[in-house]
Write a protein that binds this DNA or RNA. Structure first.
Lengths: 239, 239
DNA sequence: CGGTTAGTTGAGCTGGATCAAGCGTAGTGG
DNA sequence: CCACTACGCTTGATCCAGCTCAACTAACCG
């Protein structure tokens, strides 16, 4: 099930057979996580990182009156907190949105990798930089796109990312988020998310029902979102 | 003038004398940049990175109707686009806000460093992860803080970051941004920024006049911003 | 079949946007 | 030295996208 992770890496650079072996050797154990569990809290000291093998997770931050902002979504194949290897503690929480299977990667293995595998280290460095690019794209959404644009952009982004790991079937994919979750991604209220989803549905652009997104008109969706996949860095290049 | 950069690194980990030599050897040439110049455009292929020695720069993204979002501010000592080493081209533009002096760092030197200096590589990886943490904090601002909170948070963040490199004098520091620039950082309009600055001034919390920020009441400012410096990772730890 | 959670809709409100005008000051050129 | 210009700051009036509050409905589940 680490296959999805390898698909992600290979979309960005060549991974040799030996490197693949090194990647496979990272995971010390796998674990099941129930839905709606916060597995990592901000500030907590960490000595392992989490590779998401199956399910959906998110990073989020809270303000003291309970307002929550989800800063990134994670799908199977994502290294959810690879950055904790250098940061040692996180500035955000990590929560399972659905039941998940994770691979636990001890930091000492990453450290050994960083001493012995400079190329693979650059690839992993790259993946954290791609995470940051997604954060920037979300900053643009939150700061400058209107409500419909934010939702449309999220649907575009997730379509491309899921297709990459084989989790989209044509113009349809699973997105097991509630409207509350979508609101926390987009900086809106659940009520307004609901209305904007209705608009998009009535315009026959996208439809989201019981955790399934169905894109009726990709071009219109891209136009509404002003979506460009550049920030996902999907052209493999030697690093 | 690379001293400020070393101050930043040493706030996060121990940098040995040899490593310091390696850092100093990164800069191939220095260059002066006039104010209001976009030095790097999204998509452009890069083979050098930019170390900001003096002045102010920002990363920004545009939507097609001209709405602009600044995604991060940079001060002297920051490695403005270290991430271009692994990304090869950026998803955002980089602009000088003031006249700047920069150090040009060829990617081949970073590549050699990544082959020969695993510890320093981890430190630089860390600094790009701290950049990402700042992006997350801005996502929280843009998504969930109100206009006053966003401005207050920006003033807190810049105070801490400037103090670190010796650019704050007590509760006063230079912030050479126009109200238009502040609006592009905070996802607001210049008019609304102006009004919220007036509020903060009349409440005797902060004052910003002709590019100088003067904090009258740090505790109130922190409370309005719900500011915590955790996302800046200022406790040095071995990586 | 009753309880719980998520989605839907309506009515009214408000934070921040928009539009427009005026002001202060630094530079520029005559 | 003053007129002129340009740019950034300030303020007022009005508008609207998205929020709040509240009630209702649909789906799921033990």
């Amino acid at each position: 099930m680490i296959e999805k992770h390898l698909l992600k890496l290979r979309a960005r650079d060549i991974v040799s057979a030996e490197e693949e072996t090194a990647v496979r050797a990272l995971v010390a154990e796998t674990r099941a996580i129930p839905a709606k569990t916060t597995i990592i809290r901000a500030g907590q000291r960490l000595d392992t990182s989490t590779l998401l093998l199956d399910g959906w997770m998110c990073r989020y931050k809270d303000l003291c009156q309970g307002q929550r902002q989800i800063t990134e979504l994670h799908v199977a194949g994502d290294f959810v907190d690879l950055h904790s290897f250098t940061l040692k503690r996180l500035d955000h929480n990590i929560m399972a949105l659905t039941p998940c299977r994770i691979g636990v990667v001890p930091h000492e293995r990453l450290r050994a990798l960083s001493e012995e595998q400079p190329h693979l280290t650059r690839i992993y460095w790259l993946t954290t930089n791609i995470d940051a690019a997604a954060h920037r794209e979300w900053e643009l959404s939150l700061g400058r796109r209107d409500a419909t644009g934010r939702l449309a952009h999220l649907f575009c982004e997730m379509h491309v990312r899921l297709e990459l790991v084989g989790l989209a079937r044509g113009m349809r994919y699973m997105l097991p988020l509630t409207q509350q979750d979508l609101a926390e991604c987009t900086g809106l209220t659940p009520v307004h998310v609901n209305r904007m989803l209705r608009d998009l549905r009535e315009q026959r652009v996208v439809e989201m029902r019981r955790g399934v997104v169905h894109i009726h008109d990709w071009d219109r969706l891209v136009a509404i979102a002003e979506f460009s996949p550049d920030f996902l860095y999907l052209d493999p290049e030697p690093r």
